[in-house]
Write a protein that binds this DNA or RNA. Structure first.
Lengths: 287, 287
DNA sequence: GATTCCTGCAAATTATTTTCTTGATACGTT
DNA sequence: AACGTATCAAGAAAATAATTTGCAGGAATC
């Protein structure tokens, strides 16, 4: 696990001096990464040995090991990101957006429920028919993306962003089918209704959403995607990127699950696309 | 700039001993990050001072500074990523996909032509009407995403993934309008045709594509998005994530450019959304 | 009141860097 | 072509700096 999480988890068990060190590291981390043990000790008003002991307690070999671990998760992850970029200069805006996207992926990975994804992948692989639901600019894109990824694996699938259609499809689905729905906020009331309907008819449901949300409650399998509030509201792109990544994982697992030999075939197709490529973008569809 | 690029750029100017050090670092970088200067020197069959000099030459303050820099870009970026995950165990697949996505963002950032994006943003902000083009599963999504992001800023915009429509639109466009098109491969012949048509009519064109590609050649402004081949073919998601990030940057710059005060209003709208949120995903559209 | 744990000091150890020197190579001069 | 000089690489050893360990005093807790 990464050093930041450890630091937060252990915080309660740390002594006063150690908490001071932790706070300095967390707040001024550029400093911490470049400082020597003496400088860091000086800033925290403790002696160098205390810093060494602090590092040990966090599971590091030594102070330099600590710095390396720190630098490792420094580039992305667990940073206190400001809601706005440093300035509106193009370079800063770019940096800000890319860092946030990377952070979203980092946080996604940290909180990823792999078991749930695996379970979902297995259900999808065995489904006779799949219905993918999602509404609103973001989730509707995810829904069609689910279709996009899964139909290529030979699965029967359709997607809809239309509430009425979703309800009708949910009513038409059989227990051997699967419903999969996405909701960034988890508060999509219509999706909850469709899932409830499905549940009554014993149709398995999979939700890609925030854990603990209404949508999560009514789904059989929830693949939780929990990102800090800020990211959701201020910049939907980073959340969307996280969803796309989850989808990618899900689709890959389904592919592996479906037929081990399929990956070989798939690779051959890809290879062929590489060799004679003078067409257009649609080549990439063969992914 | 990152230490890996520097190492590759400087390689020619390094001495024999230094090249040996560089190779060890590049190949076994877990080792390099954890090793002391003596261990690293020993493995490279050089003396510790040589290692120090090597670090200095690369622009680092000291050996420990070098290690920090190394660890920083170790988590993501410039890694020799295997085309396939370690195993098909779900956790490994997840790790593989997320790492690749983060790497794509890293590489995107490294190669980002900020000036081109800024130029493109300015053009879009001043356009009387915008036409967003893209075909194939990937670029068509990008095209509608462009529309999605820009219409909220009060711009007049439409998107199309239909070749015939694209041609007709290109023909109908005026020099005060802007055409913006996306092509992952840069080999979308129809897009090239549409752009050529636009050029003849003096309609400004912006391309989001691979630099040096046919599409890039016919566009007035090219925002280059160059990622290693492997990523494009084997896993379109990471490329798509890069495109989404670029789009996010572009849209943000347009927003800032359009009206500085708009950001204030936008923030107020967001705040309001946060306070009474019991609806569904579509709230997030207000991003 | 005793125990435990934190903490800093000083010493010891270790790591890193500087300085100095040697050896090699390249270049210019005779 | 041969010699001398300049330049650079690279290691040895010394100096310096950083880090860790051992120990002892002191605070907090039970």
């Amino acid at each position: 696990m990464d050093i930041f999480t450890t630091m937060q988890d252990e915080r309660g068990r740390l002594s006063q001096s150690e908490i001071r060190i932790a706070d300095i590291v967390l707040n001024d981390f550029e400093f911490a990464v470049n400082a020597s043990i003496i400088e860091l000790a000086g800033k925290a008003d403790v002696s160098p040995p205390t810093v060494t002991r602090f590092c040990r307690r966090l599971g590091c070999e030594s102070f330099s090991d600590f710095k390396v671990q720190l630098a490792r998760t420094a580039y992305v992850g667990m940073r206190y990101l400001k809601p706005e970029p440093k300035s509106i200069a193009p370079a800063d805006v770019a940096q800000d957006i890319i860092t946030k996207a990377q952070n979203a992926l980092f946080l996604l990975h940290r909180g990823l429920d792999v078991a749930a994804i695996e379970q979902a992948a297995n259900r999808l692989a065995d489904a006779e028919m799949i219905y993918a639901f999602g509404s609103g600019g973001n989730s509707s894109m995810i829904a069609s993306e689910i279709q996009n990824r899964l139909f290529r694996l030979g699965l029967r699938i359709t997607s809809s962003s239309d509430h009425s259609m979703q309800l009708m499809m949910a009513a038409a689905a059989k227990p051997t089918d699967v419903l999969i729905g996405s909701s960034f906020s988890g508060r999509n009331a219509e999706l909850v209704r469709a899932f409830t309907l499905a549940r009554e008819a014993k149709v398995p449901t999979i939700a890609l959403t925030q854990s603990g949300s209404p949508v999560a409650h009514v789904a059989d399998i929830t693949v939780p995607i929990d990102l800090p509030e800020g990211d959701n509201i201020y910049r939907p792109t980073s959340t969307r990127i996280a969803y796309l990544a989850v989808l990618d994982i899900l689709a890959s697992l389904v592919a592996y699950r479906l037929r081990p030999q399929a990956t070989v075939i798939l690779r051959r197709i890809k290879q062929q696309l590489v060799t004679h490529r003078d067409g257009d973008d649609r080549q990439l569809l063969g992914d």
